[in-house]
Simulated assay, not measured.
Amino acid sequence: MRTVRTLAAALLAGAALLAPAAAATAAPSPTPSTGQGTGKDGRAPTEAGTGFRTAALFRPGQKATASAATGDYLYWAFPADTGQRATVRAAVTLPQSATRHGAQTWRLDVYDGLRRRQPCAYGKQSTAAAREAATVELSCTLRTVRSGAEAWSNDPLPGSYYVRLTVAGVHEEDLGLPVRAQVEAAMTETGGAAAVDAALAEPLVPGISGASESQREARAPEGGWSGGWWSDRWLWTAAGGVLAALAGVYGHSLTRGSGRPSRPQA
């Protein structure tokens, strides 16, 4: 009975160890953001770049804005780390319908640090707006960022992600009309369910090797790059090892108990 009580207490302790990890894996939640920007004043950018090299940096949770002309290519960039799944949303305020000559189709594309276009797991990546529409909204949810991948694969890896927003279909006479754009990125932590046993030497951030410390911080997530070494799989592995050891002790105690010779009755 003493062995059984000891084993029961140990199993309860192991269950308590597993509970936080199970809760974190079963119910991923959006990563909170303090709204700190990349500029000195901590604000989100109010202009967009015209290419990958001039992309305006913003952090997840911020709303980056820009005034532009219909037909312009607008570029922004944000950091995404291992275990995060990014959802990028964009909204475009269109010119007044009286000044437009037809419908418009807008498109949202997301590229990684190697400028590889990343497919959307789901979302409305391309949207057509009627002539009477005042706004158009788009979204793209990427696959979970992995800590490492094969060189030939197109898996999303930690680093900078570029957002490109432009009109893909428009009446020629509407080119140049003023528009107002807004983009944001929301992160969801997926935990060890998407973890892999690999890690990059450095995140895919162009120019990070020769960048200053302040430039590195501006391009990194608020908590810095994780490096991909940690995931909640460590908790599951440790807890599983503890439970396996306890099961072995319990099995050994049962074997010893069944093998004892019975005492002769007087």
Rank of each mutant, 00 (worst) to 15 (best):
M1Y: 11
L7R: 03
P20S: 10
A21R: 07
A24F: 12
A24P: 09
A27F: 10
P28V: 04
S29A: 13
T34V: 13
T38A: 13
G39Q: 15
D41N: 07
D41G: 00
P45E: 10
T46V: 13
G49V: 14
G61L: 14
A66H: 02
A66V: 09
A68G: 04
A68H: 01
A69P: 03
T70F: 11
D72I: 04
Y75T: 11
P79G: 04
A80V: 08
L94R: 11
Q96C: 00
R100V: 04
H101I: 03
V110W: 10
D112T: 04
K124N: 09
Q125M: 02
A130V: 00
R131D: 05
E132D: 03
A133K: 05
A134W: 00
V136A: 07
C140K: 03
L142M: 12
T144K: 01
R146G: 04
G148L: 13
A149P: 07
A149W: 09
E150D: 11
E150K: 14
W152N: 13
L157C: 07
P158E: 04
V167A: 10
V167P: 02
V167K: 00
Q182W: 01
L204W: 15
V205D: 06
G207E: 05
S209H: 15
S209C: 10
Q215N: 14
R216L: 11
R219K: 06
E222D: 10
S226P: 12
S231H: 11
W234R: 03
L243H: 09
S253K: 02
L254W: 00
S258W: 14
P264D: 11
Q265E: 05
